[in-house]
Design a protein around this nucleic acid. Sequence first.
RNA 1: GGCGCGUUCGUCUAGGGGUCUAGGACGCCGGCCUCUCACGCCGGUAACACGGGUUCGAAUCCCGUACGCGCUACCA
Length: 569
Amino acid sequence: MRGQDGPAPGAVERTHEKYSPRPRPRFDATRGQPIGSPPMSDPSPASPVRVRFAPSPTGYLHIGGVRTALFNWLFARRHGGRFVLRVDDTDAQRNVAEALAPILDGFRWLGLDWDEGPEVGGEYGPYYQSERQPRYQAAVDRLLAGGFAYRDYARPEEIQAERAAAEAAKEPYVASRRWAGETDADRERFAAEGRSFVVRLRMPRAGQSRIDDLVRGEVVTDWAAEADHVIQRADGSFLYNLASVVDDIEMRISHLIRAEEHLSNTPRQLFIWQGLGAPPPVFAHLPVVAEPGSRVKLSKRKLDRYLKNPEFAELYERGRRIAERLGHAVAADTFNPVIVDFYRESGFLPDAILNYLLLLGWSLDDRTEILDAEARIAHFSLAGVNRASASFDPAKLLSFQERYMQALPAAARTELVLPFLERAGWIGSPPSAAERATVLAIVTAAAERLKVAGDILDYEELFVADSALVWDEKAFAKRLQQPPAAAVLLGEMRAELAAAPDFTPAALEALFAGFVAARGLGLGAIVHAVRVAVSGKAVGFGLFDLLSILGRERVLARIDRALARLAAP
RNA sequence: GGCGCGUUCGUCUAGGGGUCUAGGACGCCGGCCUCUCACGCCGGUAACACGGGUUCGAAUCCCGUACGCGCUACCA
């Protein structure tokens, strides 16, 4: 089993009835590096699984980034390895701590805990690239000394001229290396000309680079197709390809699970691994998370465009409505379904998001959709990762949310909902015992109408003073003003409610049944009128639950107010 | 332009030469339930990008084309 990326025998056996494991991985993982994924009962100290996610402190957590992080996290947990968070702040100009906070908060909220990284430390730190400069310099020096890199004294316009010439000749551009400072004499001469230098990789011009990608299989590229990439700028700062590889080496990263956009970067990075004399990790390039109905990578900057997709718009609208009631800002770059905070602020469940994201590019079999945290870890395998990019489906995400929400007992849903009501100022903070009891009753009555926790804010009518209740005009007209008998019936019902011995839903239902039976009417003849009178709305959960929750006093006060308006000219 | 990667219902996917008149889920459409809404239940719609091979047989293997995405930065 060692060296194979498949479920450990124990895990498969345990769940054999429920899930049918794949017959075999898509690719023979043993062809590449030994990937060290032994069963958890037999950890291999020689090649422990170590994976990383390296976010830039951008101030927000991208949903696609979460998917990549999730796959890394799952892989680490599945194989008893370590999940490392590394902060990619090489060109950090702003306040890193401030820009990192939403990202770390997002991970915490989702339950993606990291074993090494910011706040927790670890033996391979520091975990901020900005604090690792000396290591990068040492690596550059070593590449230079080994002939894997050179100092390039060319001026930008000279490089451009060479490129333009190659393009004009319709030939691929190949660096001339004319201004390579190979000797001390060269360097002095160039410096005397007022030239500065960058450090470039001296890429091979023959042969091929070859990786065995766990998702894509074998990927072969001609070395000659690779440019002499810059790894250190003229100002001495370092570039991504260099810093990333140095860190991955020093942090002992065993598997590089990252988005497909990095596949083309791999050969040049492989060259650095070679130059530094380190064995490369095992690669797994994940398909990107794309825009709804497209293959283009999802971006937080294109909200306006995504809003043209009805399902995306519906998801956004749900969150926006909630944020608005809480008085939160809804600026596109902070409040947006591409950003994880959107879901937290709307009251989504982390498990629902994780489950949805897991199935975006991965599947267990032909029917399993719901995988709880344990099952996700037990069954995750890179062999199940798809190759094609997957477009983000807002409707399906919502459907996972609904399913997870429905699975929660009312008491748990109440706990989720309470903070929203507190923040809206509709109940005390902390809520009183009576308020908690009322909210539990509301949550129970609302049942599956609460798709996200923030949906509780749709029930404002249950929290406002009777005198402040606002009627939906259309509903008021249709159910109370237009039907000729509405006012009379409502008045008669008012009397019965006032005299009702019991205000439980069951008793109220019996009362209403008797009321319509005595008059030879259908239930609808009175139910709608009462609903609009007491809630102001045409829609909502069961009327008897509604009346029972409001209680006799408030129900009568609201009906009286409606009757007064009906009586007015 | 060059190089790399990809392509099964609108979307996520199952599929590894015959069990595929291509399965599941979300969406959508229709119906049932019903005091409205939501839930639930039943039914339906809908796909192997195209063209060549290989083979008795191709969604599946090979080649090509088209289209999409990525890289080709002193971005990450």
